[in-house]
Amino acid sequence: MNMLTKEPTMKSTRVCPYCEGLTSQDLIFKEEAYKVRGETFEVSHSFYVCSTCGGEIDNLEAPDPLDEAYKLYRDKKGFVQPQKLIDFRNKYELTQKELSHMLGFGAVTLSRYENGALQSDAHNVALEMAMQPSSLLMLVKKNKGIFSTEKFEALLEQLDRECESIYCSSSNEIYRQLDHSGISEFSGYSKLQVNKIIELIVFMCSLSGALKTKLNKLMFYSDFIGFKKQTRSITGLHYVHLPYGPVPNNFDFVYAQLLKENIISKDEVCYPNGYVGENFISNREPDLSVFNEDELEVINFVREKFKDFTSTDITEYSHKEKAYLETSNKEAISYNYSKYIEAQ
């Protein structure tokens, strides 16, 4: 362990446990190297040195250097810090028992994390997910039985309000950019549902991500099969005929907005032919509570049916649809073509 001794910064008269009496002592600072899960962090450590016997005495008022090393590790890895976890739990007036039950690990474990123990990678992911209002809303609904009726309803009201506020900035921009000219055969007789657009994208990208070309088709099939099932589209999006198949109109802006707000992230995938694809990955769990039962059945079906399709596979598949064959480049696609959809 490397140490760099600094000059004393303060003298004081204190009890020396070795001399068993009051002595003059110097406060000494040293930089110490601590290893945390294979990574080294330099942490300042202080102690007193008795001027009479030379004994080193712990500075009980200073932070524990190992706790400081854990803090630096959490900062580097983006882990949830103990105080942030405590503040989160207090914000929603959740007990350790309630939160740990929803997360699936013991209250003792959660208490240790709040008191400075270093969480595992898996538990940190669970904590980060739970701290998203939409994810916490789902956990609260799923674990209704652990709350009193009054507390459950208060949590729902608070989280619904927060989720609506979060959607507000995204929704306003997306709504402004997308076609919302009216309810018609081109919107699937549904008004534009921006919250469902966002959550459908998050859902489709939540496993191993989705290349943009494939994601556009997953949106198309979700809406058109949804329309066939319940005579209205899920999202209210307008679709157009483009060379790579049917796609939501003006949708690059939506992806850009979600990237900007860190709802999704993007990796570039390079292919041997020189083509560079964009793979979108969800940064949080989808809030499936925005969908009704029929819609959930549809989007699960679509994701499962096309899970092993490449972008080329699903593009070629969509080119066989009447919705594509009977429209021309850049032409709007009517949801009336949904009755001919092959993916069933």
Results as ranks from 00 to 15, higher is better:
6 K>Q: 11
17 P>F: 14
20 E>K: 15
28 I>V: 13
35 K>L: 10
37 R>A: 04
50 C>Y: 08
60 L>Y: 11
67 D>V: 09
69 A>Q: 02
76 K>P: 00
86 I>R: 14
87 D>Y: 08
89 R>M: 12
90 N>I: 04
93 E>V: 13
95 T>N: 06
124 N>Q: 04
131 M>V: 08
131 M>D: 01
132 Q>T: 11
134 S>M: 12
138 M>P: 00
142 K>T: 07
142 K>E: 11
153 E>F: 11
155 L>H: 02
166 I>D: 08
175 Y>C: 04
177 Q>K: 14
197 I>Q: 04
205 C>A: 13
206 S>V: 10
208 S>K: 14
222 S>G: 03
229 K>P: 00
231 T>L: 12
234 I>S: 03
238 H>E: 08
240 V>G: 02
242 L>P: 00
242 L>N: 03
245 G>R: 12
253 F>R: 10
259 L>H: 04
266 K>Y: 01
269 V>D: 07
271 Y>P: 00
282 S>K: 08
283 N>Y: 01
286 P>C: 10
287 D>F: 15
293 E>G: 01
295 E>V: 09
310 T>G: 12
314 I>F: 09
315 T>M: 15
324 Y>M: 10
329 N>V: 12
332 A>F: 10
333 I>N: 05
335 Y>H: 09
338 S>F: 09
341 I>T: 11
